[in-house]
Amino acid sequence: MSVLVYTENWDGKFKKLSFELVSYATGVAKMLSTSVTAVSIGKVDESELKKLGNYGADKIISVSNDQLIALDSQAYTSVISEISQKENATVIIISNNNTGKAIAPRLSVRLKAGVGSGVSKLPLNLNPFTVYKRTYSGNAFAHVVIKSDVKIITLAQNSFDLIEIANNATIENLNVPIDGSLLKTVVKDVQKQTGKIVLTDADIVVSGGRGMKSPDNWPSLVELATLLGAATACSRPVSDEGWRPNDEHTGQTGKIIAPNLYIAVGISGATQHLAGISSSKYIVAINTDKDAPIFEASQYGIVGDAMKVLPKLVAAVKEIK
């Protein structure tokens, strides 16, 4: 028996998300009195792999085939399911990010394993195996029983604190032969954003809504974000109007985020917007309308015009930085 965790890397490096997954897997393994095996796919050097041990991984299996550079959901599923059978895994943990969403459901069918997706707490119960997940876009949470022998959990990002447990993990380099004809995904082009904080990874997010009045007013918001080391986001009307790029849209149909601090500037807080941000630990709202629903979701609020408040906030942050 073991708990298996898939740890994605980005250009050979892990990030907080990977360590969060291992911390979570360690918590589950402790409940089950078993060990944690982490699986890494792609070229990651030994010193980087070792870092997974700092969060409790007992064993790290590294698969570094050249054929697996691009995400092919079928090939990745084959590799992870093969390892999970070999390791006799009873619980498999994957991120609820885009990669996880591509792999977890295929793995579920391959292993006939039920999936609890977007889970944000350790299992509530082992018998029956019960997980806690977000439903109705954050307006409710459900206790879900997974009935199959093997269980898959996809963990909501930024939902679990890192726990450092120094473990001297063993590393096993595994060569999984891949039949080339099974690789169906051809990547024709990659467009990477450089120098921008990935919105779903950010600890702090500064987000603008229609109350910003014009795309020309964004520099002060961006300045505040830069000073705080924050990512920038926006509400749906703002991305629909083309004031900001689509990938900044936060809300029900856009990105679902859970930063430590979300600063909503000129956003009224429609249900659909709150669905994307309600898991933030702290929400700050700046809005001219004191009755705007965003204040009900916020711990701190300023009633005022964003254009007047932002420069003062920028000045105040400069004082402390």
Partner: peptide, 13 residues
């Protein structure tokens, strides 16, 4: 393979 056993509301802020 799965079953919702109970729903709950998010904790109030």
């Amino acid at each position: 393979l799965t079953q919702i056993v109970v729903f709950e509301k998010p904790a109030p802020r």
